[in-house]
Structures are given as C-alpha cells and as structure tokens.
C-alpha cells in the first residue's frame, strides 16, 4: 500500500481574534490536507475566514489552537526567525492588489525575495529575468509598477512569488482587481505553474475560477466545508 504524502496537513485549527471584550472565531476546528502539486481554490464569502486560513498556512499568522504541518514540518513549532526562513524557502505569496514596492522596478521587485537567500547577484539577475520572461514582461522589466496595467502588475506579483522556486504558492484574491479576460489569463498562468509542480492555493470568491483548480475547499463562518 502506497502512503500518500500530504504537502499540507491542517489539524484541529482554530483562530480567535480578540476585539475589546469580544472574541471572534475566524477559524473553528478545521482539519484537512492538501497534496503536493494540487491546485486548490479556497472559496467563501467575505469574512468567512479564508484569508485568515491562507495566512495561517503561509506561516504568517499564529493559530490559537491546532497545527499546520507543511512537508511534515510543524511550522508553528518553529521560532519566528525560522518561520521567516521557511517562508523564504517554501512559500510564494501573491497578495491582494498586487502589493509591489512602488519605487522599485519590475526587475528589482522580482529580485526582492532573493535578497535574503544568499543568491549571488548575477544569478539573482538571471533568475529574475527568467521568471519575468515566463510571465511575459521581458520588455517592461525596467518599468515602475505604476507604469503597468493591473494585469501586468499581477504578473509581476506572480514572478516575485515564484522566483525562489517555492513548492507552495498562496494567492489571495489574485484576480479580484482584474477584468474577466485578464483574470482568466492569470488563472491560466497559475495553472501552468501548477503543472510545473507548484502546489497552488488561490483564495477567491469568484465561482468562475473554480474551473481552473483540481479541488475546492469551501469555508463558511470559519468552518471547513468539503
């Protein structure tokens, strides 16, 4: 019997936010797993807890209770600095509204994650140009983010997320600010990255995006709905 290795295992996960005297349960007892090289869409209404779940899986947000194992590694048993190294090595983030550094060029934005990996400057440059080429922005590598369209900025964000070749790509509403055609192009790009072996988890509330994924995890009021 073959044992399946899950890339992510979420066990008994709970996240409660304190707001004054009020406690808000953002995540309630979640248990699920995600396999290596899966393309997952994480769906739910606004405030359902999907972004919180994504940030917890991304080693950014300490859960109130439970464990998240990535590659069998309990990421919240690590120190804050070890988690920073983990994020650098394992995770590529694509944030809502692109979140590029406005005063850096496309090339510099893409090279940013390599600044802390000890990659040599020449290699950094080559790797960044490769991924910029991959997302189709070679001609615009020296432009500033505000000189690009929304779709192009999203591509830069994707290039930045994959430049360190992380096994896991977490995208929070990557198509939220894009028209449907551009959104479709972006999802296809993510799909091709998934085909290259990246595990991709996309938070979205757009049901059209489901079609690009292997599986959908629905979140409702902080609970996992299969």
């Amino acid at each position: 019997m073959t044992q399946i290795d899950h890339l992510i295992e979420v066990r008994g996960l709970k996240k409660t936010y304190q707001s004054g005297d009020t406690c808000i349960d953002a995540i309630r007892n979640m248990d699920f797993f995600i396999d290596d090289a899966e393309f997952i869409t994480l769906m739910g209404r606004s405030g359902s807890g999907k972004s919180t779940l994504l940030s917890i899986m991304g080693a950014l947000n300490h859960p109130t209770q439970g464990k998240v194992l990535v590659d069998s590694l309990d990421i919240y048993a690590l120190t804050a600095e070890q988690r920073a190294d983990f994020r650098s090595e394992y995770i590529g983030f694509i944030f809502q509204s692109f979140q590029l550094i406005p005063y850096l060029t496309v090339l510099e934005n893409v090279k940013l994650p390599m600044a802390v990996t000890g990659t040599k400057k020449k290699l950094q440059d080559r790797m960044a140009r490769e991924v910029i080429d991959r997302v189709g922005l070679t001609a615009k590598s020296l432009r500033l983010p505000d000189q690009l369209s929304g779709g192009e900025q999203e591509r830069v964000a994707i290039a930045r997320a994959i430049v360190n070749k992380p096994p896991l790509i977490l995208a929070d509403e990557p198509t939220g600010n894009l028209d449907s055609k551009t959104a479709g192009d972006i999802m296809m790009l993510l799909q091709s990255l998934n085909k290259d072996g990246h595990t991709v988890i996309v938070v979205t509330h757009n049901p059209d995006m489901e079609a690009y994924s292997d599986r959908t995890i629905r979140v409702q009021d902080g609970e996992y709905m299969a």
């Binding site: 920073a84 994020r87 983030f93 979140q99 550094i101 940013l112 802390v116 360190n164």
Partner: peptide, 16 residues
Amino acid sequence: TREIGIFRAIGFRRGH
C-alpha cells in the same frame, strides 16, 4: 507598515 509586511511575508527576518 504595508511594505514591512511584504518584506516579512517573503522571508525577511527581523534582522533584515
């Protein structure tokens, strides 16, 4: 804050 958040998310340590 936003920029620092991005730095931290992409793997920058506190020291960085």
